[in-house]
Amino acid sequence: MFVKRHRSRVRWARPVLAALAVTCLSGAPTASADPVAGCAPAVATPVLPAQVPILDWSENVTFDADGNLWVARLYRNAVQRYDRTGALTATVPVEFPGALRLGPDGLLYVVYGDAPTSAIRPGGVVRFDPRVAQPRPEVFVDGLASMPNGAAFGPDGALYIAATNAGVIKVRADGTIDAEWTARAAGSGGGSGANGIVIRDRTIYLTANGSALGQVVGIAIDAPERRAVLADLTTGVAGIPDFADDLLIDDAGILYVTTLSGKLVRVDPSGGAVCTVLTGQPMTSVVAVPGQRDELFVGTEVGTVLNVRLAR
């Protein structure tokens, strides 16, 4: 599954090792100045190079059930499937694609309209079968004039969409919007500048860049009016706020957040401890490599996809 240490089974085109190490830092008001477990520098290896930098911008990345990698190419208005050798096997037209998420029904759900033009040309979500040779997208929900970006399925089967200009939008399994829940979430103030989103134990973890940049926010699914700022990210230069993009949560409940300044940041939501484990080019998205402990795939603005090995 795109894993470097099984080189006999995986043939990426000459990945060039790029060890990108940084020192730990404290970025949240409650964080300790001492290094915390898991803050050792990570190592990144390019596994899918950009053919045309920026045009190949990899807005989001995910794996399907067969171990294929899917990449949302924002400026190519397409999502692309790559097999385990790194070969391109399908291109699906999607206008300004954002998050890619495998649904409980086995279909791949793709946010579209991830651009400021969504106010004029509304976005939404399409879905398709990722297993067929040439997937054909169908609209699951539309009319989102709020720059939809991130997405995550909740334990209730609903799809929660992070929209830059609306906050978190709850979409039921039948494709209808839960307007009451969505209004409650917006009323908490947790929706400003919403970007990436993950869900665990009925808690939504959200990156937000509204009135304050670089916040990681927690919202309770059962009480969306409840909101807490879990961490504030900075660039490390005079405490300048960073732009927080995508995030994931691991089995231990630790968050990994990508940022515009080119950082992969580790956040312990239980206490707010923050440290940077990787620096490099601006990072847009992050996904865990299936079946591989401590390995991630990270998308970038240049378009290169990186394999990141965490040090534990």
Rank of each mutant, 00 (worst) to 15 (best):
N60K: 03
C275Y: 05
S188I: 06
A185D: 10
R14N: 13
P290Q: 13
T45A: 02
W70V: 08
A50M: 09
A78R: 11
C24W: 14
E301F: 10
V274R: 12
G253A: 00
P241W: 12
T259C: 02
V36F: 06
L306R: 09
T62E: 02
G154N: 03
Q51V: 07
G291A: 05
E225W: 10
A228D: 13
N149Y: 08
L74F: 02
V3I: 09
D174N: 15
G86A: 11
Y112R: 10
A115G: 02
G124D: 08
G210D: 03
P116E: 02
T234F: 09
A151K: 10
S32C: 06
L69D: 08
V36S: 13
P116C: 01
A31W: 06
G124W: 01
K170M: 09
A244W: 03
E59N: 14
A19S: 12
T276M: 07
A231W: 07
P148S: 10
V198M: 01
G113C: 03
G150H: 07
A21N: 03
Y82F: 14
A33R: 13
Q292M: 10
T300A: 08
G187Y: 14
G239F: 04
L100A: 04
T182Q: 11
T30R: 02
G280Y: 10
A37Y: 07
G271V: 15
L310D: 04
V305S: 09
Y112N: 03
A133Y: 00
A231K: 06
G218E: 05
P290N: 14
L296W: 13
A50H: 06
L74Q: 04
T164D: 14
L213Y: 15
G196W: 05
A90R: 05
D232H: 14
P35N: 05
C24M: 09
L230K: 03
I204Q: 03
A44I: 11
R227C: 13
L213Q: 15
E138G: 01
G189M: 06
V217R: 03
A44G: 14
D142S: 15
T117S: 15
C39E: 14
A40M: 08
A238S: 15
P135L: 05
W12L: 12
P46N: 04
V92A: 06
V61M: 11
V171H: 08
P122F: 02
G154V: 00
G193C: 05
A212K: 12
V22W: 12
G239E: 07
T23F: 08
G193K: 01
C275V: 05
D250F: 03
G214W: 00
D294L: 12
A212G: 07
P241A: 13
Y75L: 14
R293D: 13
F153P: 04
R121A: 11
V36L: 05
L206A: 04
A145V: 01
I240V: 08
L260R: 15
R127P: 04
A288N: 03
L100R: 07
A119R: 10
I161F: 06
Y82N: 05
L144D: 01
P137E: 13
G271W: 11
V126N: 13
G262M: 10
